[in-house]
Amino acid sequence: MRDLVRSYGKTLTTIFVALVCFWVLIMIVLPQAFMIEQSLWTMQRDSALGVKIDRAYADLATMNYDLGNARDESAKTALQAKIDALQAGISDMEQRETKPHKIYGLQNYTAMSGLHFRIFVKSIVYALAVTVLALLVCYPLAFTIAKLATPQRAALLLLGLVIPYAINELLRVYAWLMILDYQGVINSALEALGLVSFQDKTWVPFLEYSGSVFVALIYAYVLFMVFPIYNTVETLDKNQLEAAEDLGGSIWRTHWRVVIPHAKPGIAVGCIMTFMLSVGSYSVPQIMTRGKSGDWFSQLIYRQFFETQSWNLGAAYAFSLVLVCLVFILLMMKLFGVGIRDIAK
């Protein structure tokens, strides 16, 4: 802090610090805090309240009529007191109807139905599978670009990986939809080979398999796996590979003992990003399955917010997902023996 003041002066430092605080508050703390708060309460709504209020108004009218006909002074005051009490009761009930009670507790978290819980677990398992598949695809790719390709070819390959990202994610996913559709590119090719027939509807229903979502997810998030791994492998001294080869190490052993230990932070970051992006992805499963092979948890959350209007439940679902991601991060750090500092690199 004092270093900052020394090198940038008081004004600039204040601006820096203010910006950082603003960023932390607006981008990190507020949305999460809002979501956690939402997830921790439910409305106490008494559905009979409206009827009770109506009945009270009827009683009130009767009492007012009685009051007009009453002769006895003492009976009058007694009635007046009753009317006042009733009126207070009505306004209290009315208050409760417009501003219902919040009841805090963990009920939103425990309220998940068996079906939703199955979807929750399924989504996590699928996201893990996507992560593993993406790692299997991306590690060799990243290694090839970093260590085997000539610099020009490596640049071309990286460019080739980045270019599709200039296109909107939705369009990229739709491209896969067209490839895998009933009468899509692959099935057309199969028909041309005489293996399927559009007329008899004997096409391969790729889109009804979860595999199609996997493919699209891997495709959508390949970069987030390739780049961190590429960056770490890039820094590996080429002589280490040659030394391992010279000492008789096979390709497998060299990777297992030399390259992977070196690339661990990159692998951890790649897995974390891919997992978080896939477990939270809404558009990819939505587009790819067209609702045909069951919901992903992200679609459930969306529905809680925008279709059933149960924001509290939605917030609890969403926050459960955040917790899963946090657990996953910790797990990866433990598994790969890397600290938060290595990951930040």
């Binding site: 001294d237 002589n239 040659e242 030394a243 391992a244 000492l247 190490g249």
Partner: peptide, 21 residues
Amino acid sequence: RGPARRPTALIFQNLALFPLM
């Protein structure tokens, strides 16, 4: 014959020790 199959061993200019072992 590749380096693994020759009766030679090379000591690199920068040694190329494996830092994580």
